[in-house]
C-alpha cells in the first residue's frame, strides 16, 4: 500500500510544500498532534485491558491516513516523514515545557480534554535535556542534528533518512553513530 501511494504522489505537484520549510511543518502539526493524542489515549486504556501493543509506526500511520485522505502534498514519503519528525519534536517539547511550567506554578491544574498531557512526567525533563543537547549539536554539525531528529523523533530508518536528507545510507549511519556518542556524553554530564 505504501508503495502504490508513493508512486501516485511522486508525480504530484508537491515540491513547493517541501521547500517551504516552516510552512510545511505548520501544515502538518495538527495532524501529527491528533495522532499523538489518539495513541496516548489508547495507551492509557491499555493498562486496563492488560493488552499492550507497539506504538512505533505512529508517524507512518499518520502518513497512510493523510495519503488516503489526499490531503498530502509532499514530494515523497521520506520527505513527509522528515517534516513529521520536526513536527513531533515541536509538539513533544512543547508539551514537556507546559508540564514544567505547571509544576513550577504549583498544584494540579484542571485539564480540559484537549490538554491531556502526552508525555510521561518522568520522561519530560529527560526529553527537554535531549532537546537542548540536540540544539547544541546543531551548532557543531547541522547535518548530524537533522539525522537524529529524523531517527529519534520521526522513528525513521536509515534508508528513509537518507532519502529525506539526500545523503547516502552509509553517511546517515556514520552521522547517527557519532551524534549518538556525542549526545550520550552530553546527557551523562
Amino acid at each position: 500500500m505504501a508503495d502504490t501511494l508513493d508512486q501516485s504522489k511522486r508525480d504530484s505537484p508537491g515540491r513547493n510544500s517541501w521547500h517551504s520549510g516552516r510552512e510545511a511543518i505548520d501544515k502538518i502539526l495538527p495532524f501529527i498532534y491528533e495522532e499523538l493524542r489518539r495513541i496516548a489515549h489508547y495507551r492509557l486504556r491499555a493498562e486496563q485491558t492488560g493488552h499492550t501493543l507497539e506504538t512505533t509506526g505512529l508517524v507512518h500511520e499518520a502518513y497512510l491516513r493523510l495519503a488516503a485522505s489526499e490531503r498530502l502534498e509532499f514530494e515523497n514519503r521520506a520527505h513527509f516523514l522528515a517534516i513529521a519528525a520536526q513536527a513531533m519534536r515541536h509538539i513533544l517539547i512543547d508539551s514537556a515545557l507546559t508540564r514544567r511550567t505547571q509544576k513550577r506554578g504549583g498544584g494540579l491544574q484542571p485539564l480540559s480534554l484537549d490538554a491531556v498531557p502526552i508525555i510521561a512526567e518522568t520522561r519530560s525533563e529527560d526529553l527537554l535535556a535531549l532537546d537542548e543537547a540536540l540544539g547544541r549539536l546543531a551548532e557543531l554539525n547541522q547535518r548530524q542534528a537533522r539525522v537524529v531528529e529524523c531517527r529519534y523523533f520521526g522513528g525513521m530508518n536509515i534508508e528513509d533518512t537518507a532519502v529525506a536528507l539526500d545523503m547516502s545510507a552509509a553517511t546517515v549511519k556514520r552521522d547517527w553513530t557519532l551524534a549518538r556518542a556525542w549526545l550520550n556524553r552530553e546527557l551523562q554530564n
Binding site: 496516548a40 495507551r43 513533544l92 510521561a120 526529553l127 529519534y152 523523533f153
Partner: peptide, 8 residues
C-alpha cells in the same frame, strides 16, 4: 523510541 514517552 521517543513514542515511549507517551505513557502517562
Amino acid at each position: 523510541p521517543v513514542l515511549d514517552v507517551l505513557l502517562i
